[in-house]
Simulated scan of single mutants.
Amino acid sequence: MRPVIVGGAAVELYTQGAIVSGDIDVITPWQETFEVALEKEGFVRSVGFGAFARGFQHQEFGFGVEVVGRQLMEGHADQDRVLIIDLEGGGNVSFIALEDLIADRMGQYNAPPNMRDDMLQQAAELLKLAETVDKAYLDRRISDETGGDFSLLFLENYVNAQNNS
């Protein structure tokens, strides 16, 4: 499995900058190798109050990178759905699939001890801006990530209520 960008940076990509993130969260089974590569590119391990536990900062670029896990969605995401974007000049970068990202935001919305309205709002914004989604897959992933507490229908109703207010 290749490194995959998840979290806020993926939200920023899928919302075309409507929601901005200050860091890049990455999933990779090769954390140590990835961190050595970051250091070679000028990233420095975050230290001190407020630092990410596994994060690196780049002073010149003004953002951080953090390895947040070894497996995409703890192995629940379909690897074939990962979005691979070719970069000018060669190379490519991988992003979590839109459906898995929406499900992740719903899971964070549902996380105790309190509901995170910002995560519900991000899930709604992602759904509104999506050109196409696999609704059956998305519904299953939302249910998985929320322990069955929420569904795609809940999110669609939320989006519709926002549009009508």
Score class of each variant (00 low, 15 high):
residue 3 P to Q: 10
residue 3 P to N: 09
residue 7 G to Y: 07
residue 8 G to K: 04
residue 9 A to L: 11
residue 9 A to W: 04
residue 11 V to H: 02
residue 11 V to I: 15
residue 12 E to A: 12
residue 13 L to P: 01
residue 15 T to Q: 08
residue 17 G to W: 07
residue 17 G to L: 09
residue 18 A to E: 14
residue 18 A to F: 12
residue 21 S to Y: 03
residue 23 D to K: 06
residue 23 D to L: 07
residue 23 D to T: 08
residue 24 I to L: 11
residue 27 I to Q: 07
residue 31 Q to N: 02
residue 32 E to V: 15
residue 35 E to F: 03
residue 36 V to H: 07
residue 37 A to N: 10
residue 37 A to C: 10
residue 39 E to S: 11
residue 39 E to V: 12
residue 40 K to A: 15
residue 44 V to W: 00
residue 49 F to C: 02
residue 49 F to Y: 09
residue 55 G to E: 08
residue 56 F to M: 04
residue 58 H to I: 03
residue 58 H to S: 10
residue 60 E to T: 10
residue 60 E to K: 13
residue 62 G to C: 06
residue 63 F to S: 04
residue 63 F to W: 10
residue 64 G to Y: 03
residue 64 G to T: 09
residue 65 V to K: 02
residue 68 V to T: 12
residue 71 Q to Y: 06
residue 71 Q to I: 05
residue 71 Q to M: 08
residue 78 D to P: 01
residue 78 D to T: 05
residue 79 Q to F: 03
residue 83 L to R: 10
residue 83 L to A: 07
residue 85 I to Q: 07
residue 85 I to A: 03
residue 86 D to F: 02
residue 88 E to V: 12
residue 89 G to A: 05
residue 91 G to I: 05
residue 91 G to E: 06
residue 92 N to A: 13
residue 94 S to A: 15
residue 96 I to C: 08
residue 98 L to G: 05
residue 100 D to C: 08
residue 100 D to I: 09
residue 103 A to F: 01
residue 103 A to G: 11
residue 104 D to Q: 12
residue 104 D to I: 09
residue 105 R to C: 04
residue 105 R to K: 14
residue 106 M to P: 07
residue 108 Q to N: 13
residue 109 Y to T: 09
residue 110 N to I: 04
residue 111 A to N: 10
residue 112 P to E: 13
residue 113 P to Y: 03
residue 113 P to E: 05
residue 114 N to V: 14
residue 115 M to V: 08
residue 116 R to M: 13
residue 119 M to T: 01
residue 120 L to H: 00
residue 122 Q to A: 14
residue 122 Q to Y: 05
residue 123 A to Q: 06
residue 123 A to L: 06
residue 125 E to P: 00
residue 126 L to H: 03
residue 127 L to Q: 02
residue 127 L to P: 05
residue 128 K to C: 09
residue 128 K to T: 10
residue 132 T to V: 14
residue 134 D to N: 15
residue 134 D to Q: 08
residue 135 K to V: 13
residue 138 L to F: 02
residue 138 L to W: 01
residue 142 I to C: 08
residue 143 S to F: 06
residue 144 D to F: 06
residue 145 E to R: 15
residue 146 T to N: 07
residue 149 D to H: 08
residue 149 D to C: 02
residue 151 S to N: 03
residue 151 S to D: 07
residue 155 L to N: 02
residue 156 E to F: 01
residue 157 N to C: 08
residue 158 Y to L: 00
residue 158 Y to T: 11
residue 159 V to K: 03
residue 159 V to A: 00
residue 160 N to Q: 13
residue 160 N to F: 02
residue 162 Q to M: 15
residue 162 Q to T: 04
residue 164 N to S: 15
residue 165 S to T: 11
